[in-house]
């Protein structure tokens, strides 16, 4: 977030928050939104488009599938014990291993990408965060410098913020 100060607007109502977001976006200011639950309205107003997490999931799944099949085939070839007249490399039997590894690696890749994109873990930097944002309030945090501080405060108040606070440092 750009700027030396953070102006924090605390909202009780979602429609007021959406008005505030639209106003801040129109002024081309840097901002961040906190909400107590996922709301698609906020996503559409701030970050439309699809998350890139799915690409990691697909990549993980492909790697897992390859790993599972390769593991089963190479281990069987390394210790070629014939069982019940089955082939040493028995694709039907190895399908389960490939299938499970596909899911396992896909899930782990999804987890890794989620942490990456969400910036987690992050125990220190919570610009403008207020504990009420995990309860019932919405937060609109706008980064600004000293010269446009009053303008930003005015925009947030006008959009319907319950209160507007300023924090030093971002």
């Amino acid at each position: 977030m750009r700027g030396s100060k953070a102006v924090v607007g605390v909202y009780s109502y979602l429609d007021d928050l959406l008005k505030g977001i639209a106003d801040i976006r129109s002024a081309d200011l840097d901002y961040k939104v906190y909400s107590p639950a996922y709301r698609h309205e906020i996503e559409e107003a701030t970050l439309p488009g699809k998350s890139s997490v799915r690409r990691f999931t697909l990549t993980g799944g492909i790697i897992g599938c390859t790993f599972g099949w390769t593991l089963a085939i190479l281990c069987s070839l390394d210790w070629p014990l014939r069982v019940s007249a089955k082939d040493i490399v028995s694709p039907p039997g190895f399908f389960v291993i490939g299938y499970e590894c596909t899911i396992l690696f896909g899930a782990l890749a999804t987890l890794g990408s989620l942490l990456l994109y969400c910036g987690l873990p992050n125990f220190l930097r919570k610009v403008g965060y207020d504990p009420r944002f995990s309860r019932d309030k919405f937060g609109l945090v706008v980064g600004c410098d000293g010269h446009n501080l009053e303008d930003v405060k005015g925009r947030l108040m006008k959009s319907g913020a319950d209160e507007v606070n300023v924090t030093e440092g971002i």
Binding site: E43, L47, S51, T57, L114, Y117, C118, F123
Partner: peptide
Amino acid sequence: SLGWTGNNTQWKHFIAAYLLF
């Protein structure tokens, strides 16, 4: 909680990842 704040970026990727999970 890993420092979760529920900002718009986190929710966006969280919901996508949750669906994929």
